[in-house]
Amino acid sequence: MDRIWVLAEQRDGEPSTVALELLAAARSFAGAVAAITWGSGAAEAAATLGEHGATKVYDAGELGDSLPGPRVAAAIAALVAAEGAPDAVLVGQTYDGRDVASRLSARLDRPVLTNVVGLSSEDGALVSEHAIFGGTRVLKARFTGEGPGIFLIRAKSFAAEAAGGGAPEVVSIELPDTGATDGAKVKGRHEEERSGPQLDEAAVVVSGGRGLGSAESYALVEELASLLHGAPGASRAIVDAGWVPYSHQVGQTGKTVKPTVYIACGISGATQHMVGMKGAKNIIAINKDESAPIFTIADLGVVGDVHTVLPKLIEAIKAHQ
């Protein structure tokens, strides 16, 4: 493979972790790896992207109050028209990444392979891996038509690693005016207070499920997560029930986490949940139902009521500290 492009989201000069993960993957398959970035701080981000293997960084400049989807996709489509299609465009499956990949797919009339958790090269083409049926099976797929292949890749699929690369060539590109598709404008940005680490970056994740019985009991999960300097997560069931926001969801339709330890509290272990957390180094599960599927993958399973075990555990950890 000759060329792979990586969509690199960045904030205040710091590239997203998933962008660095994708660069590590890209440079193992292609000689020329370019990153596409935008927004304030892009110039600073370029240095880090270079260290991680980007030999060229396309800087699309300021987005203003536009959402990234329409204009960044248009910029990439213009780049394809000007420089020819790369073998692949790798996009992290984030809120904005999904928008960009979807718009680009429709613009170029090329399909997208989504929920990719691994890549390999066969006969000079990229083959993607997907975890299906709760992660019990691995499906491999490839594109059959003309490129570029667009891959939406889940965070934590690859390890980010600096390659010791030098300063990349930085090329300014335009963010085209896309008219009506760019009609949605950001009027305000709100940061929610978070005391601990980000869910998909945390070394410890404590998640709650339906077994908590009520939204109020989620406070136990939050307290335990905070004591362990971890992040609180949730099963789809309690997100659907409106107890916690979608951003907390771990699983197929939520985030993939690979912490040192994952503590599942009152989570039965639906396949849709397990696919998002079975990559944890250690799994501890607390559940009343001894036949809960979560126990089939737990390193330590406690058959018990979260309402009795969690308060005692919280007290014991406080005493320990």
């Binding site: 299906i132 019990t136 499906l139 491999k140 038509g145 399973g301």
Partner: peptide
């Protein structure tokens, strides 16, 4: 314009 090449069993985690 995409093709599934294979579907295989994933590595299983064992219960502890």
């Amino acid at each position: 314009r995409q093709q599934v090449i294979s579907v295989q069993a994933a590595e299983e985690r064992k219960a502890g």
